[in-house]
Design a protein around this nucleic acid. Sequence first.
DNA 1: AGGTGCATGTAACAGGTTACATGATTAA
DNA 2: TTAATCATGTAACCTGTTACATGCACCT
Lengths: 182, 182
Amino acid sequence: MTAPLSATGRVILGMIARGKRSGYEIKQLVDRSTRYFWAASYGQIYPELRRLEEAGLVRGRSDPSGARAKMAYELTEEGAAALRDWLTDATGLTYELRDEAMLKLFFSDLEPGTALETVGAMRTLHEAKREQLRAIRAAAPEMPAGPALTLELGLGLTSWLVDWCRATEERLARESHVKVEV
Amino acid sequence: MTAPLSATGRVILGMIARGKRSGYEIKQLVDRSTRYFWAASYGQIYPELRRLEEAGLVRGRSDPSGARAKMAYELTEEGAAALRDWLTDATGLTYELRDEAMLKLFFSDLEPGTALETVGAMRTLHEAKREQLRAIRAAAPEMPAGPALTLELGLGLTSWLVDWCRATEERLARESHVKVEV
DNA sequence: AGGTGCATGTAACAGGTTACATGATTAA
DNA sequence: TTAATCATGTAACCTGTTACATGCACCT
């Protein structure tokens, strides 16, 4: 029965378990991997590292390169146990989405003609995300099973979204065309 | 050039434009429609309604039913213009996701055997969401074009996710089976 | 000499949730 | 009578972002 992990604490512990040991390195890795479904900023990471240390889940020692300060964190026994507990428990998974494009789409009939443009903007966004994910995959052909799974899921999801947008754009264009013609 | 709309202000203005006029009604409608991609709580709605009124975007008057207090809000000219401006502008669309299931999946290789369970929990969640969306569609066969579009998108998306989870569960089960057998 | 990257950190703010308090109305 | 629903509202809290400050190291 270890203490429950805070939201940001989860990513931090996981990243430290993967071998990344400074706040800076954790941020780098988050930005290249989980950021699409779980972001973290310095403003969260550094204070949280301190809290985790106070709670005894990580242990940090100074590991400077020359005169440049650097902290090297590693998991304690308790930290490894907390990470295991969290990974083993599949209940109460948070899921939060805030998608302004969908909100605009929801209200699109209030301002006729905006639906097509909104879906177009939505497609552009997801296309960009898909390209970024492809670049990540290309840059690291070998990766652990977990990251590989989420990358595959992200790629599939964005691809589905791009296709939906394209199909919907065609349909909306056809409908407005028919309306004009008849 | 009207003032930019705050996050919650967007939903509120849209819902008022759809005819919902009290904070309570707005919350009800949000919970039955946009909540899957854009939530709102009373703690946001009531203060925001006041701010919108101070900014001159909505106008509220008391409209009690008997001795039960009730406020009826409607859009002002400025409010309608702000809503139009927002709907017409397809740039800078916020998109934020926080999906703990995907995060656990990302770290699943740190604790062998958890991937299958995590994907299973993920599927259960999306199946439930899909059922809720189906219930909404069944309860309101006639709906405006905007809500119909987002409902269709939500249903398609959750269905794709459920299918991906199912396929991945099969694959993971097969792989672990092979591992045991060889 | 200057720009980029490594590295740490914080203060101010923004946005949102939860829990609570209050009270009327309606249906069982 | 009592539970559910209608209806408003706030205070405390949590979580997270943005912008800034600081300084070393390395490359050109």
